[in-house]
Computed example of a mutant assay.
Amino acid sequence: MATLTEAFLREVQAQATVAPSMSVGAHSREIQSVLAFIENEPAAGKLCRDIDRIFRVSNWLLDPVCLQKFIQLVGEAEFWMLVKERGVELERIIESDEKSPDFKLKSDAAVAPRFEVKTLSVKGGDINIAGMSESSFEAQLSLSQQISEGKCFATAITEAAPHGHITDGKNTTAIIRNLIDKTCNNLKTGQYTDGPTCLVLNLMLIDGYYDGSTNLRPIVFGWPDGWSVRSGAYWNLAFGQTEHLVFGLSEFEGKPGIEGKLERQGVLAANKDIAAMLLVVHPSGESPLIYGLMREADEDSWQEEKRELAEAFFKLVEKNWNDDLDTNGWCLFNLTNGGQS
């Protein structure tokens, strides 16, 4: 019987000349690691069965509903795997009719910290995924036609739009609004009230356009030019306010740098029941990282009755965290800017 990794690679190879998925291709290495983790984790039996059920669907990689469900399951398991690699032990919470988070910290405490994992899909969900698959298929068809016509070099363009169609000059605004909207659409009442609970967002499908932890700051300076300024997408996802101005990257000197107002409230600003936010991000060419966002006003309680939550949070994020007052902004950096903030 084939392993999950073997079944995954067989499907990827089968569709490689039909309509290769850029989302899957970009994260193939990480997906294989997660599938191996699932098969070797005794408590991941349900995840293993759910993924195996998807793999039994003919051409599942071309089915947008199956592909979206697969990425959501992989995103949940990836967080579990990364947490375990960092020495934090979680217990999977058994699903029931009552709404509950996905994991809780292994602890002797009466109420252990909990973690609710959401893998955000692209804007438009399976409809957009289907559109990207169609674009990929048309590109492959064009390549085949060019080769059959005897061309020495065949080229084609395919499009991936995880944040949907973006109006020119509104890139940063569209990204932040989409992240907030997708997150809020995934929040369920009652999942964050039984104990200190972190919301975990896996951004495998809709990572931001810019690498580096400076996205955890309200404002990001100095990239790609020394005079450049943009709003930090992840900070605004958590703490943005409707009247906040959104700063975007100007195409040239002298073009206005303010895109407009955010017109959204950040997730942590609007939902006091959520103790903190963790983001699973995938920097280009790097291993996945976990970023963290918390409220500065909660610091005292984290040092006292929520000490277990604090210890787990900082063990997972290391230096990649910030709060609503930009307390840790001084040591955050741009991967795309040689490590400079």
Score class of each variant (00 low, 15 high):
residue 25 G to A: 10
residue 46 K to W: 02
residue 51 I to P: 15
residue 24 V to Y: 00
residue 52 D to P: 11
residue 66 C to W: 01
residue 20 P to E: 06
residue 33 S to W: 04
residue 50 D to H: 06
residue 72 Q to I: 01
residue 51 I to R: 14
residue 66 C to P: 03
residue 11 E to Y: 07
residue 57 V to N: 12
residue 61 L to F: 06
residue 75 G to F: 01
residue 43 A to R: 05
residue 76 E to W: 02
residue 32 Q to Y: 06
residue 47 L to N: 09
residue 55 F to W: 14
residue 76 E to M: 06
residue 64 P to S: 09
residue 61 L to E: 10
residue 76 E to T: 11
residue 43 A to Y: 06
residue 64 P to R: 07
residue 77 A to Y: 07
residue 68 Q to W: 07
residue 15 Q to H: 04
residue 15 Q to T: 01
residue 80 W to S: 07
residue 52 D to Q: 12
residue 15 Q to E: 02
residue 17 T to E: 10
residue 67 L to A: 11
residue 61 L to C: 11
residue 27 H to W: 02
residue 53 R to H: 14
residue 29 R to V: 15
residue 64 P to K: 08
residue 57 V to A: 02
residue 23 S to F: 01
residue 75 G to M: 03
residue 36 A to Q: 10
residue 54 I to S: 15
residue 44 A to V: 07
residue 12 V to S: 09
residue 11 E to S: 01
residue 50 D to S: 09
residue 46 K to R: 05
residue 77 A to R: 08
residue 46 K to L: 04
residue 32 Q to S: 13
residue 66 C to K: 03
residue 62 L to M: 08
residue 41 E to Q: 05
residue 14 A to E: 04
residue 25 G to H: 11
residue 30 E to L: 01
residue 28 S to R: 10
residue 51 I to D: 15
residue 32 Q to V: 14
residue 30 E to I: 10
residue 48 C to M: 13
residue 36 A to V: 07
residue 50 D to Y: 04
residue 61 L to Q: 10
residue 37 F to P: 14
residue 37 F to H: 15
residue 64 P to V: 00
residue 55 F to A: 15
residue 48 C to I: 10
residue 54 I to R: 11
residue 29 R to F: 15
residue 62 L to A: 02
residue 57 V to H: 06
residue 19 A to L: 06
residue 61 L to H: 12
residue 35 L to V: 06
residue 44 A to M: 04
residue 68 Q to P: 10
